[in-house]
Amino acid sequence: MSAVTADSATQDHGHGANAGHGQTTNTGVSNTKLAVWAFLSSEALFFGSFISTYLLYRGRDTNFAAAGLIPEAYNPQDLFNIEFTSATSFILLMSSLTMVLALAALQRDDHRRFRIWIASTALFGLTFIAGQVYEFTEFYREGLQLGSGTFGGSFYVMTGLHGAHVTVGIFWLLSLYQRSLQGKLGSEKSEAVEVAGLYWHFVDIVWIVIFTVVYLVPYHK
């Protein structure tokens, strides 16, 4: 057969789950990164389905209550504390910035800064989740339950699933922090941070959409 090309030579060294640096692929994008992109595109449709559900039902139970079909309607705008949620949303948005800084720090082998930024990202995420837990408790106390018309379900399930994604992200970030502490996360493995970042930015973007659709757009059509 023909001479072993550069491509096949690298493939000879096994191509495993975390094909990172040093491995050539047909597309030039590493396997891991491509996989995360593919996965996130699937996730986008997942959230898209819930956001569509929310939009379909937006304002509906108000109409139903007006027609006497359900006992009471919920006007979420009365419940929302826009200032508070804007603040936590801003914090989550900022965490994307610190995520970028963390990756940049790692790429120039500045491990101390990397750990600071990655910890801040996780902390910001945690703040956001704490805000969400507080918000849910408040709403629940004020009478918004899962069974409150269609709004209760579509609101809690959509934002709750988003919160779950943020939580998974926090664990992911902390595991990177841990690996860095152990000295196992050199700049040559910065792709591990990059893909965590992709996920984190994605979750952020989803929140921007949810925040706009749920909190900023008026509930009544």
């Binding site: 819930f50 339950q145 269609t150 209760g152 399930v157």
Partner: peptide, 29 residues
Amino acid sequence: LPPVTAALIQVYMDRNFGTHFFDAAAGGD
């Protein structure tokens, strides 16, 4: 798969947690 996963979650929630995604009497469709 994402749309059907969302639908299945909604079915599960309706069945077990009293949400009204598909309950027309409460505004669902």
